[in-house]
Design a protein around this nucleic acid. Structure first.
Lengths: 248, 248
DNA sequence: CGGTCTGTTGAAGGATTTCAACACTCGTGG
DNA sequence: CCACGAGTGTTGAAATCCTTCAACAGACCG
């Protein structure tokens, strides 16, 4: 096998479909909090959202901006980053189609606590938070779903706190790669290719380490045959091996 | 002033009132998700809960146990701890009267992801999760409050992730002390005394560090006149000074 | 094909952990 | 009431993990 390092990522944009109404409805239906709604209900709900497009690299909103909107990813990948006053970044999450982001807590400060950036060309549905609240009153099933999702995210955050507190960087990195593999992995000749642009800095910001250390560990993983990687892309060859490292 | 190191904590138990019905109702009303209910509604809601008492040190539930109950602290302090397979502990939260704990996410795994321990003698109200769900359907205002609280906790967790990722131990410790001071601080000749038993290990498990490092930093803070501390207790003398350290 | 952004790697320095010994506090039983 | 013992807190010294700084190499864009 050649030591190929050119990007194998699928870069096809979304000019083709331009986020048709059908696609939007389909993705809204996929969103976990609308699962269970009838087609008619979904149509009513969809009308309350408005669509917007961004190209790869665009900032969807900045940390600190006034926050009034709740958003759902329809197409593409979005990353959520918290910036510190010292210029360090913390990557909180990578979002897939169907996931929500923006502001849920109408209480207290109504400004975004993180920056949202389009990783690829994306289509986003938005709804004013106050309108979303009305929706929750009308569809109590949706309200329960939203609560479930938020509680799950809290669980995930607490596991992340546990990892940061108790595991060395290598284990944390293994865990992050496994998680990304489950979420973004697509079969490919390199193994499970993570279908999103992913730099060493992104990985470092997720694991709470420096880019230098992230790079060293990725090199080590590659040397052990666990992954294959190049500029802005990563493929997982042995997710079981990584899982072992992550669990330990 | 004598260099007094004997505990100034108020250890009075709760045999006096034995959690009267009135007290329980009052504390339920204090719980942020029931704020706004009428006295009548509160009475109805209170009947669905059952009370239980624990003495200092008791485990209320163990991590991994089947989780069906949602609980509210009526009296005393409770700590939530995640244990790792390597025997390390991560202290997620210290709870006050009015705060809920237990399981909210009815989705996925229905086992507690942390251990809950009584720090003092406590009175706890419990409700079966399925019944609580029914309550949410009847009182949509409560459902919104629960969502708000959960979203706020998510925010807090993400800030904690940020701190673990970007700040050195000293700053994290300062932040934790300020937070505990806001929550448990009571005026006292030593300054703001934290009204709960708090060991160096507790602080270490909150800050994601070792007890040795936690002890060293607390000694340093004491040397700088920021705090006064002894076995299992801490008083904050200069919360502004700590806040500066935490923000930096 | 050059420039820029990203990734790699070495070496030195720093923060934190670990191990270990000792001191202090508090509850318990003599 | 005192003394002991267990649990908790403190502190030193060595070792370790990780960061920082820096130089260079590779990949992608125009």
């Amino acid at each position: 096998m050649v030591n190929r390092k050119t990007t194998p990522l699928d870069n096809s944009g979304l000019e083709e479909h331009h986020c048709t109404l059908d696609l939007r409805k389909q993705k809204l239906g996929m969103a976990p909090f609308f699962r269970g709604l009838s087609v008619d209900e979904l149509t009513t709900v969809e009308k309350k959202f408005s669509a917007a497009h961004f190209t790869a690299g665009d900032i969807i909103y900045y940390q600190g901006e006034h926050a009034a909107m709740l958003r759902v990813v329809v197409h593409g990948a979005v990353k959520l980053v918290r910036h510190t006053s010292e210029g360090k970044d913390v990557l909180l999450d990578m979002l897939q189609p169907g996931e929500y982001f923006g502001n849920l807590s109408a209480s207290g400060n109504d400004s975004y606590s993180e920056t949202a950036q389009a990783l690829t060309d994306v289509c986003i549905l938005s709804i004013r938070m106050s309108n979303f609240r009305l929706l929750l009153d009308d569809y109590s099933g949706v309200a329960q779903s939203v609560l479930n999702i938020t509680a799950d995210r809290l669980q995930t955050s607490q596991r992340q706190i546990q990892h940061l507190s108790t595991l060395p960087v290598k284990n944390r990195m293994a865990h992050i790669l496994v998680m990304l593999c489950d979420k973004f992995g697509e079969d490919n000749k390199h193994g499970k290719l993570l279908q999103l642009p992913l730099s060493r800095k992104d990985l470092a910001d997720m694991a709470g380490t420096s880019t230098a250390t992230a790079s060293r560990i990725m090199s080590q993983f590659q040397g052990e045959g666990l992954i294959t990687s190049g500029r802005q892309w990563v493929a997982i060859n042995d997710s079981d091996g990584l899982k072992e490292l992550a669990e330990e």
